[in-house]
């Protein structure tokens, strides 16, 4: 099963998006949301790490710590919690 990790400050608002992405993939993809302080412990085996737009300024730092691609979530998709759209955006990483 493919795995995707979502990161925001506390893992709160990304959790909503994670659920929608999971639903949009018909539960085919394992999607988890974590806070910035803890997500690194959970990235093993993930295909891609998605970063909430509110902490997009951290992307370069995160990428420096891991080989897994770290990608920002489009603010527009994030705003309407468009799980399907986000999955489309990141197709090439899966």
């Amino acid at each position: 099963m493919k795995k995707i990790i979502l990161v925001c400050n506390g893992g709160m608002s990304t959790a909503m998006l994670a659920k929608r992405m999971k639903d949009a993939s018909a539960e085919e993809i394992d999607v988890h949301a974590y806070g910035e302080a803890e997500f690194m412990q959970h990235v093993e085996g993930a295909s891609v790490i998605l970063v909430g737009p509110q902490i997009r300024y951290r992307i370069a730092d995160f990428q420096a710590e891991t080989d897994i691609p770290v990608v920002g979530i489009s603010p527009q998709r994030y705003g309407i919690m468009d799980g399907k759209g986000v999955l489309e955006d990141i197709k090439k990483y899966l």
Binding site: M12, M16, Q54, P75, G79
Partner: peptide, 25 residues
């Protein structure tokens, strides 16, 4: 649409959907 998605999170103090959805940003 943005309002319907964002009002419940906002009630619980989460404003990101509204901030990025309207967008206010």
């Amino acid at each position: 649409t943005v309002g319907r998605i964002g009002i419940l999170p906002a009630f619980f103090g989460i404003s990101e959907p509204i901030i990025f959805g309207v967008p206010l940003m």
